[in-house]
């Protein structure tokens, strides 16, 4: 016969011993990874965390096929101005707003309205300039821009997120709307997670809400047992 409450102590022992053993393991020190990896891997890690390869500055490698480059050439049917129209890719300019008429009198969000909808703006109350800096705002691919992926993590992210590395800077601040075709092209992982969760949400509710309502309705018509 088993005891009254039905508590079997075996798993408790196994799990607590395993946890105990886990806590006894020495913590992995930071230098450790470097000493035991191959030199190829070591260089890669070094590049990623410092942005330097020997004496050259390096762009961090493409992190994943799931996130593609986000600065496509975006040409509107009506250019800002005649001079502005000739510039094909502003992300390489030292002054990314060069040639835009009446630039001094305009506000960022007049053109970049979608860029004001992200978490950093709506939750942390950041202004554009806290990350993008004062005038002239360099394009993110301009060699000396603080936003250049070579050094973005150190010059921009780490201002608030102490210890931010290149991987951290791979977070997409101005992400495309998760369910849009833009996301499917540029950030498929986000796109498919979104539609997966939507299907899960719609599926669960589409099954259980009618199920519950029908239960309620049917129970009203139940004959009392006499």
């Amino acid at each position: 016969m088993r005891n009254m409450i039905g508590i079997n102590r075996m798993p408790i022992w196994i799990i607590s011993l395993a946890l105990f053993a886990f806590f006894l393991l020495p913590a992995r020190s930071y230098g450790q990874g470097e000493e035991v990896t191959s030199y190829i891997n070591r260089y890669k890690q070094n590049e990623v965390s410092t942005g330097y390869y020997e004496e050259y500055e390096m762009r961090p490698g493409n992190e994943s096929p799931l996130v593609k480059t986000f600065h496509r050439v975006d040409r509107k049917p009506f250019a800002y101005s005649s001079t502005a129209a000739s510039i094909r890719n502003r992300s390489l300019l030292a002054d990314s707003h060069r040639g835009i008429k009446f630039y001094d009198n305009r506000r960022c969000e007049e053109c970049h309205i979608n860029e004001t909808q992200d978490i950093h703006t709506t939750r942390a109350n950041l202004t554009c300039r806290q990350c993008h800096g004062p005038e002239p705002i360099a394009g993110i691919d301009h060699y000396y821009s603080p936003m250049n992926p070579i050094r973005r993590h150190a010059y921009v992210c780490a201002k608030c997120h102490q210890g931010a590395g290149a991987s951290f800077a791979g977070y997409v601040i101005h992400e495309p709307p998760a369910g849009s075709s833009a996301a499917r092209a540029d950030f498929p992982a986000l796109y498919y997670s979104y539609w997966f969760m939507m299907a899960l949400l719609a599926g669960t509710l589409a099954f259980f809400i009618p199920h519950t309502i029908l239960t309620g309705v049917r129970e009203m018509f139940k004959r009392k047992k006499g």
């Binding site: 992190e63 994943s64 210890g163 991987s167 977070y171 986000l190």
Partner: peptide, 13 residues
């Protein structure tokens, strides 16, 4: 910041 050491930063999105 710690999470991004183990997984790429975009997983935070």
């Amino acid at each position: 910041v710690i999470a991004s050491r183990y997984v790429p930063g975009w997983t935070l999105n």
